[in-house]
Amino acid sequence: MIQQSLILSGKQKLEWIRNEIRDLEADEILIQTIAGAISIGAELPQYNESDVTDPNPLYPKETGYESYGQVIKVGDDVKNIKIGNHVLAFYGHKNVGIVKASNVVKVPDSLEYRNALLNTLSCDAGKGVLKLKPASKDKVLVTGAGTIGLLTIHFLKNYMDVDHIDVLEPYESRRVLAKTFGATNTYSNKEEVPAVFYDYGLECSASIDAFHTQLKSLKHHQEICILSDGNIDLFYLNEDFYEKELKIVGSSDGWDYQQHSNWFFTEGVKTPHLSKIFEREIQSDELIDCFMELSNNNNRPLKVLVKYL
């Protein structure tokens, strides 16, 4: 069987590489990809060689990380995953993937894969929120209503039961979605955001202006979590951080993808608007052209669903 992998071989240079599938180890499974996604905020800076956290990139690089598929083969020691099961994994833009059975999340056959694919980033967002642990009556500011920002709102509203969630987002269509997801107020520019008003902040935009708005908006001795990758602007501290004696925490990856899915898959049935995050759908053979188009177009979709079958 042949594996096709989308590889970044240089700045804006993508190509499909073909390799024969190797034999499985005893604790591994082979997955036939059904769908994946382009996470624009993470992948485009890498594609454009503009990621400020990676000034001297090394090539070749694998691409993508969210994958949904069906198990077509299992290793001899695998007991909890069966051929035919649907799973989430982290092997990216490939038609098939080999992964450790312990690293996948089983997905109910009845769950629509658009919602299932969002479990990964929802768990990442949830980890950041859980580091702050806002109470239901706390006021929270989210900067950026991209995919991670919207999933942060979703987690704050439906897992933490937070009543007051305000959002700073320059794009009108994303502000409308933020309202659908449960935002109390939405702001189009930083001047509208009240100062010394919020108990907690979650930065999801990778923008230095948004980060400084967070610092200005927080009450004294409060806390902000940076959920964005920090791959667009370099952040630096200003006088608000020191004068108010604020705290900053970072967050990366999820808290427990399997445990999170127990909540997220059930909640997804009750919140069908989650699928609106996928504003574009393509076939896998359109990936290279899609990256080129996204790179040249500032009006980008929130997230791109990639179909393989």
Rank of each mutant, 00 (worst) to 15 (best):
I7S: 06
Q12F: 02
W16P: 12
R18P: 00
I21W: 03
D23C: 09
I29M: 02
A42C: 09
N48Q: 12
N56D: 10
P60Y: 05
P60D: 07
A89W: 15
I98V: 13
K100I: 02
V107Q: 12
Y113A: 01
L132P: 01
K133Y: 05
K139H: 06
V140N: 01
V142T: 08
G144K: 09
I153A: 10
D163K: 11
H164P: 02
I165F: 01
E172H: 14
S173G: 06
L177M: 15
F181C: 12
G182S: 09
G182R: 06
F197C: 10
C204S: 11
C204M: 12
F211K: 05
H221G: 08
E223D: 02
L227C: 02
F235M: 14
Y236I: 08
N238R: 08
D240T: 07
F241V: 10
Y242N: 13
K244R: 04
G254A: 11
Q259D: 11
N262R: 14
N262V: 09
N262F: 08
E267F: 13
T271P: 02
L274K: 09
K276D: 04
E281A: 13
I282Y: 04
S284W: 11
S284Y: 08
E293W: 13
N298C: 00
N299H: 15
P301N: 13
L302Q: 01
K303D: 11
V306F: 00
K307E: 02
